[in-house]
Each structure stands twice: as C-alpha cells, then as structure tokens.
Design a protein around this nucleic acid. Sequence first.
RNA 1: CGGGGUGUAGCUCAGCUUGGUAGAGCGCUUGCUUCGGGAGCAAGAGGUCGCAGGUUCGAAUCCUGUCACCCCGACCA
Length: 572
Amino acid sequence: MRLSQLPWTTLKETPAEAEVVSHQLLLRAGLIRRLTSGIFTWMPLGLRVLRRVEQVVREEMDRAGALEVLMPAVQPAELWQETGRWERYGDLLLRIRDRHERDYCFGPTHEEIITDLARRELRSYRQLPVNYYQIQTKFRDEIRPRFGLMRAREFVMKDAYSFHLDQDSLDTTYAAMAQAYTRIFRRLGLRFRTVDADSGEIGGSRSQEFHVLADSGEDAIAYCDADGYAANVEMAPTFPPAAPRPAPAAALARVATPDSRTIEEVSALLRTAPARCLKTLLVEAADGGLVALALRGDHNLNAVKAERLPQVARPLAMATAERIRAVTGVPTGFAGPVGLDVPLIVDHAAAALADFVAGANAEGFHHTGVNWGRDAPEPAVADLRNVVPGDPSPRGGALEIARGIEVGHIFQLGDKYSQAMHATVLDQDGRERIMTMGCYGIGVSRIVAAAIEQNHDAQGIVWPAPMSPFDVTLLVLNPKNSDAVTAAAGALYLQLQEAGLEVLLDDRDARPGVKFAEADLLGIPHRLVIGERGLKEGLVEYRRRRDGAEEKVASSDAVAFLVRQLAATDPG
RNA sequence: CGGGGUGUAGCUCAGCUUGGUAGAGCGCUUGCUUCGGGAGCAAGAGGUCGCAGGUUCGAAUCCUGUCACCCCGACCA
C-alpha cells in the first residue's frame, strides 16, 4: 500500500476521551474512530490488524475441526424467551422492534440461535460431535463502556458451540479447544496465561479463561510458576492457616473509637496492624435478613466465594447504611462478633486470630483482646477472601498475583440450553437424547487492544509481527528531491511484495522527521529507509521497531535480509 | 443505575467568577525558505460557543430544562 494514496491522519495530542494506552494509541495512530459511546469504526490500517487476528483464529479453529458458519446478528425474542433469558439477561440485551411490533434483540451471544439450529439440523448421534463457530459482531449494552476497544458495546467475537452425545465427547472437544486457544495466542505473539475460572452467568461446569498479561488488566490472576497453577483470583481457594490459633492472652476491653469506622482508622487509632483487626461486613441474606461476613482487616472479600454460601443472597449485595441501622440498631463501622445478633460466617484466616480488635456493636466503640470461644461463639468458618501474594497454591507452591485482560473463555455448558430448548438426537438404541454442549469465545477486537496494552513504548505501538498491519514499512526520504531515490524505492517496494511481504510504502511528500515519528507510532515491526545519502553507497537502512536495532544493508540484499528478519521474529 | 466531571474550530485547551467585538497551540490551504526524528516565515480557510427555553438593551458567560460524552462502582470476550 502506498501511503500517498491513503488519507491517514495521526494525532500528536492524546484525545481527552481516551484513558488507557491502547485506546489512546489506536486513536492517535488513526486505526479506529469513535462513532458514539463504545462503538467504533475500523479505519483502513486498523482493519488490517483486526483481519490478521481473525485469520489466525480462523486457521486454528479450522485446524481443530470446527466448522465456520455466520449466524444473524438480529435475533427473535421467542428463542430468548424459550430459555428464559429474555427476562434474565436484563438491560445488557439491546432490544429492538420491527414494523410489526415484533421483538428482537441484537445478539450479545448466540447460544439460543445455535441451539435452535442444532435441534433442526442434527437428528442422529452419528452426526456428533459437531463444533460450529463464527466470527461476528456482537452487541452488549454495557452499563459503562470504557477503555476503547477493551470494553466496547459493539465488538467482534469468535464464538464456537459444540454438541455431543456424552460427557466424554465434550471433554475431548473442550481439550481440543483449549489447545487451539493456546496455539492462537502463541501464534499472535502474546504473553498470556490460561487460568481456571468461574463459569458465571452463562452457566455450566468446567471453565477456563485466557488472559493476556498486562498491568492495566481488569482481572487479577493468581499463579505459581513452580507448580503450574493458575486461576482467576475469583476462583483461587485459600486454606486454613497451618499454625494453630494462639491461646487468649489479653482481656476483653471496650474502647471508645468515636470517629473510627474503617479498618485504617481503627488500626491507626489503636496502633494495631490491620491484620489484627476483624473486618465485619454485613450483606443481604438469602432469607431476607442480613448475614455478617468477617475477614482479617488486611484481607478482601471475594464476591464469588461469598455468593456460593447458601445463607447469602445472590447476587451479593452489601447492606445499605439504613438496613444496617434498622437491623442491628447501630450505624455502619461498629459491627463485631461479640453480642452480634445476625448470623456470622468467618474466613479461615480471621478465625485463627486471637486477642484481636473488632467492632463492639455500639456506636463509637470497638473491643480489643477479643477471642473466639471466650468472648464470641466459635464461628462458622468458610473461605471468603481473595488470595494475596505468598498464599499457598493448591498444588503446593506459593502464589503470585498478576494483572490480565480476558481475551478468551471456554466453558462446558452441559445441557443447560439443549434441555431448555429440547435439542435432541437419537442415540444408537433409537432413544431421544438431550445433547451436551460446550461453548468457546474469543474477543477478537479486544485482542487488538490487549496486544497494544502489552506491547507499546513512549513512541507508540510495537505490534507483535503476526498482527501488524504490514510486515514492513519502507520510508522514502525526500522523494521529490531525487528521481533515483524514488525509482529505487519503487523497485524495492515491488521486490518485497514479490517476495510475499505486505509492504507499506511511505512515499508521501512529507519531512523525514514526520515519517519516522509516524512509523514509530504505527508500530510496524520492521522498517527500511531509503534516502539519497545511503543510496549513493548502495545501502538501505534497516531498523527493528521493538528494540531499535539498526543495520545498513546493501540494497541488492535488502529483500533477502528482510525475509530473514521476518523468519526470526515470527513465531507463527 | 448511583456518584463525580466535561461540552467553545478537525485535535488539545483558554475565555465564564465580574454579561458588551470569540481566542491560542497543533492540524488544514497557498507561497517562499527548509528537508535524516512530528520545520520556519507570511497569508488564509474554519466556530448557530451541545441543544431548547428564560432573565437582560445585550448571554459562550447568569437561571431552568434537556441531550451527549468521560471518570469511579457491580457485569463481561
């Protein structure tokens, strides 16, 4: 592509609307433009990146035996009513109505559509297993779209759905998909991690997420390189402390803490470590009352774990200040286990405390020297907290925490949808059997953003080679001043293309500094410069974007040299 | 949806407190000079100050309403 033919606008200044690097650089490099909140246009150069990601995904899905289809984006309400999600999915579902006042939605996901398709198309166990996939535009009316492509409302997703007669078959396909996903992210040149995950609203049993590692990631991942364990912190279990609880040493005392409600305030006032304080949280209970959840002051509540408790209302809801006052008679900030009259569930670590500080269930007072069994009943104990660095891994090592961006998620759905929609086949004995399903998603457009979050520097984007919009960019310096330079550049441009490379030729009538700066911003991994200076000696200049490594190459060797560079950097 | 914030030229922003002629930098156009890391000089084009109503002789500025966008929380690829 000749840049002189492309109306390409870059931005020197960061648009005010962009908060995260990927969003800023996508806008500055002219790869996307915002139409409205969470909805973007892919510009010519940006679309090339998206297409390259799609292509890798497509190749690996095909290799894994999945079948590409393209389902409609607009879906009739009836199918969603069949599974009950027309109501349950809530406002995330963009509902639309046609001229006949019939209800539709713009598809946020396609379980209903594919299950409907499967129950029509699949009649016999002989046709199973089958795995359909598509790469398609989804719409989710997010409460708050943000971070550009990271959480857009309209986005490109690869979603696959597999159908099976039994669990063994599902296990096989699930494993094949896990392997395909690993190949995809590896081929794209991304640093990523596969983690155990909560299956969430979509339902089902087994579930794993694929996270691109980046400090700006919205998710926290607990992992241990030594033993290979990795899980979303939502899922990573904690264990009862190995050491037994110390015997009580201090007497229970009631102290005035008039304006101290938070752990920070109380621990500062009483000169105690937060780890020696009890954090008592009041949440809505399943029976309509409240439940108290207690943690060590330096630990955080894990909502997924809390929701699993039968006593706790789903979804997890912290009690409001009014509710707390109405039920306990005390304002927020002073709840504690001594004399508490709502049910109490305590985290392992907090149950191992002795002589600790806790709220006194009276406005302006806390207790010190509190001990379980003596001052408050031996509590019901559960795993309630998020893991912290250093916690033991389930496999024996010690956990570390990293930030990640979720770009893929695979689930075993079981018969949740096939049951609701009666998707059956006849088995070997001629009996009708509900099919078992798996589903497998990749956030294709999100990968583009995640790749930038992980690969950028002060100058701009540093594309992993497999998803770069071009393999190489060829800058022609001052083409107007020298016909020889222009001719040499044109010839090299053709030769590179003949060698099978995608080339971006910067033949614009622009100053060299502009070309250098914009090339860095755009982030193509390999750059060749052809200018009067070098050409006199028969040389072109090579520069690698990632580390700035430079080399002068005889123009006659340039193509061969570049082919070698590409081979060295392309993992695919 | 709750809380916070912002809407002035394509982009980044000033002007608003204390009402009176709409500004700067970048970008764009033309010319000259430049030309190996986002050039210099000169001349230009470009704005119903988000929208609607109100107050006023007069509103970007004050008041009311409304819309859009951004940020913080719960959800997700």
